[in-house]
Write a protein that binds this DNA or RNA. Structure first.
Lengths: 132, 132
DNA sequence: CCTCCTTTTAGTAATTAATCCTAAAAGGAA
DNA sequence: TTCCTTTTAGGATTAATTACTAAAAGGAGG
């Protein structure tokens, strides 16, 4: 795990190793608060601020992807392109391979889906004009 | 406009009429704060709380749709199914008819799109089991 | 046009998420 | 080991949203 962080240009600290083991060992979707709660028993002096900074660094390094789902911000350990299903009652987030929802997404893997949101992001024509 | 609100089971108040004129007359994407800022000159005693409550009521009545775009919460006056493009620099949100982005969405209407997020929401299998 | 019940509103307080700031601590190359 | 740079903890700060409550207003029925 150390080598993986080093390969992405990140310094090694106990805090970062803990975050990496939690976030990168298997596919998860966790909010910064959830990460903080899960790690504070192991690192009692840990600060929430450190979690925010660490997740930002991991995102910039390409190790994590920040996603906005149902009004919450969570970090996803799978960075390749895929969709998500989100339960509006319990908040569960599940990965969906892009191919699984090409048509008629009203029932997906035993979910009852009643809404789909698709957002494309980038630069609008005006900002492109201004800054290339 | 009054009749439209009444048809949706909503009581008429000056605050609601002001919100309705701002949000329902033409297609807009506004956050609660933006709605509040735009109306407080007309209704000096207006409270932000009222905006939140009113937008909630309008959403429940089917007059508005709440969308989460780029980490922000905005209300969309178009309730039929469509996608959005969001500029990560200036925050502009543009409607996209669903048909316009079926394939190769990397360039849409002179935007430079570099990310797509698709979220399906509803009830997960566990919650379905529990509550039908 | 009254009356009365229910809903809505304003205002304040409380919560929550996220960022800013600074000094101390730690990483790691030479 | 030394020294420079990055990272961390902690508190302060900002912003978004919800909770609470008493007062005000809507509107149905007389």
């Amino acid at each position: 795990m150390e080598t993986r962080l080093r390969e992405h240009g990140l310094r090694i600290t106990p805090q970062r190793l803990a975050v990496a083991e939690l976030m990168l060992a298997e596919p998860v979707h966790l909010s910064p608060q959830q990460v903080y709660e899960q790690l504070r028993s192991r690192l009692p002096s840990l600060s929430p601020n450190t979690i925010y900074l660490t997740l930002d660094h991991f995102e910039k390094a390409g190790l994590l992807r920040r996603i906005h789902v149902g009004g919450r911000t969570v970090f996803d350990s799978r960075t390749e392109r895929h969709d998500h299903a989100c339960c509006r009652r319990c908040g569960l987030i599940q990965d969906l391979p892009a191919s699984s929802v090409e048509h008629a997404p009203l029932t997906i893997r035993r979910w009852r889906i009643d809404a789909e949101s698709r957002v494309f992001s980038g630069l609008c024509p005006a900002c492109l004009e201004r800054e290339g």
